[in-house]
Design a binder for these strands. Structure first.
Lengths: 367, 367
DNA sequence: TTGTAGGCGTTATCAA
DNA sequence: TTGATAACGCCTACAA
């Protein structure tokens, strides 16, 4: 039963070139101690035979696959697609390929994929928004693969795990403080699903800042939503049905955009009747009208950062078990302050966005 | 030299359970003819040893990797992230994992990745926006892997290749015809990079419809751009600097949004001073103001469609070498007709968007 | 129902 | 410098 893909093996090449298997292998791997004659003969044999090395066989023999598993909640969320782009760019630059898996908010799916990828033999794992508790993650990851978890729930784990935490708490504090400073008093919160750490951290910041400003925390002003436009839309519906907030701090930009939609439906003017602040600073955030005030995270760089971290853990295991922070910072735009931008300000901002790397990724070469 | 990942092998399991390797293998693969006793013994052995099957070894032995390679221009383009989501969902439902590679507009990168993935042993390949000509693709793919190319340049190829063509020409015709019907006469075009087929097809439709309406084709009204917001921005700058079009048909929504930005900068009112039509109907298209008229492609479904096609080619090679079409249809919104939507229309539209699967992917379970 | 032998395509260890 | 030979972990005949 012939293998499905490659018919020609290194052995065939060796035979044609009249050398041993090992020699052919040496040539393929650019081993220095091969006479130029032999090298040339082997290379031309490869050429004429159309030899394709089998990465799988190589992996089996070496125990390395040059492959990284990336698990994200949802790649169609612009946050993750930008972040993944960062990962892939830095991984491929080092000769690695990336698997991409979507788990939504499903812990079972997460476990399933981690297992699958480990069995698939990945050299490293990037977990985005993991919902696994420390003990669970320890169980699934048992001494398996160098891993870095970004904004995951676990606060510790096996020795080969590193943690990257976005400064959700600090960023959210800035957002809520900003709203209060602008004079809004009935500040509601569309929260993320409570299984996820960033959701908890952002909610905590919301409560803390309220308390520090002597504003009562009212549970009915907090609605949980799925981190999508649809989630924000339905949460907004629920919120505005029963309450009269004058400002809403949203879990992320997607929910904020959903809320914006509801506001528009109800004829509310943002920010006059309702101020809105999002989180993440995904591309559409600056494109909607009014432009969204949000807490900005450089998603692409975060992706690069995370990828570099696994890579260094793979290179030297001593690099593992680290706790890293990544900045998040408030960007004030139109949806949270009563005066709109002037034409000039607006132009400047749009221009900046249009020229930003993320808006312009594929244009780099040309310019 | 112990393998890097798994120390415990099926052999270890067999030894502990006191059975032969083959029996352990049988249990693992749910072979029916194993006595319940033995099965239980083997399973508990696996448990206590923490056995992890090696997918790599399995692949080497069977010639199947349960892995699909997906190559896209840029995953941070919402079009491709939605499409990929469709791919991944349908692939994972069949037990496949997906590699994801970004190639931007770079042919060399494309060849490199195709090669890499083939050597990686993928069972199938999904090529989005391939720039490879028929002969090149034939060379790289030589009798290798079942492949489907979506909106690729090649019009034919090896026997294991299928082609999916989005109805770019028809869709673009609708778009341009719409503009002319609305009374715009100086219709410009921000074109995609001419290496890519959809760009050529959309440009061709533009020229044809102009001709059919007895409007002269003026080359200075056509500017080429990278298919990104930044690309649209700079192309728009160039275009509006020298020309006075009253409408622009854009290669895609990203370039349209970039152009929108330029219009705003220059104080042009869309659509009164300048009408704009995009292509793709990515999520942000309906979120910008004015809402973008665009040619809609159901990206998620397209992804599913393409994935199902490779899968069926893998299952039966006779399913290959097919030419499939995928619909694209004009959606008229605000950026191309002088009257804005009424509040009611706008609400209805927003609501529809918020409830759409793509805006709401992760919310499905809850509702 | 279970065990044995051989092979999948490479790399690695040692002599030669 | 090169060449046998043994892993790598699993699967598939075939035999028992």
């Amino acid at each position: 039963m012939p293998s499905k893909t490659n018919k020609v093996t290194l052995q065939d090449v060796a035979d044609l070139a009249g050398v041993s298997l090992k020699t052919a292998s040496n040539v393929k791997n650019e081993w220095p101690y091969v006479s130029d004659q032999v090298r040339a003969r082997v290379k031309s044999a490869m050429e004429t035979l159309g030899y394709r090395p089998s990465h799988i066989a190589r992996s089996l023999a070496t125990g390395k696959s040059d492959t990284i598993g990336v698990i994200v909640p949802d790649i169609s969320n612009p946050f993750f697609s930008s972040a993944f782009r960062g990962c892939e760019d830095t991984l491929s630059a080092q000769g690695y390929s990336a698997y991409l898996c979507n788990i939504d908010e499903d812990v079972e799916k997460e476990k399933y994929y981690i297992n699958l990828l480990v069995e698939q033999g990945v050299d490293g794992l990037l977990l985005w928004g993991s919902q696994l508790e420390a003990e669970e993650i320890e169980k699934v990851l048992t001494n398996a693969v160098p891993t870095v978890s970004i904004d995951g729930v676990a606060e510790s784990g096996p020795a080969n795990l590193s943690l990257i935490q976005v400064e959700n708490y600090q960023g959210a504090r800035q957002a809520v403080a900003h709203l209060i400073e602008k004079g809004y008093r009935t500040v509601a919160h569309i929260a993320g699903t409570r299984q996820r750490l960033p959701a908890r951290q952002r909610l905590a910041a919301y409560r803390d800042v309220l308390a520090e400003n002597a504003i009562d925390y009212r549970p009915e002003l907090v609605v949980e939503a799925w981190p999508s436009i649809g989630g924000g839309y339905f949460a907004g519906l629920e919120l505005l049905e029963n309450q009269k907030p004058d400002a809403v701090f949203c879990y992320n930009d997607l929910t904020a955009i959903g809320l914006l939609t509801v506001a528009e439906e109800r004829g509310l003017v943002v920010p006059d009747d309702l101020a809105i602040v999002g989180f993440d600073d995904i591309l559409p955030a600056a494109l909607v009208s009014p432009m969204l005030t949000t807490v900005s995270i450089n998603q692409y760089e975060l992706g690069c950062f995370a990828a570099n971290q696994v890579l260094s853990q793979i290179a030297s295991p001593s690099q593992a078990s680290r706790q890293l922070a990544f900045p998040a910072e408030l960007v004030i735009r139109e949806s949270s302050q009563k005066q709109r931008f002037s034409i000039e300000e607006r132009r400047a901002l749009l221009k900046k966005i249009a020229s930003s790397p993320s808006a312009n990724l594929t244009a780099r070469k040309k310019s």
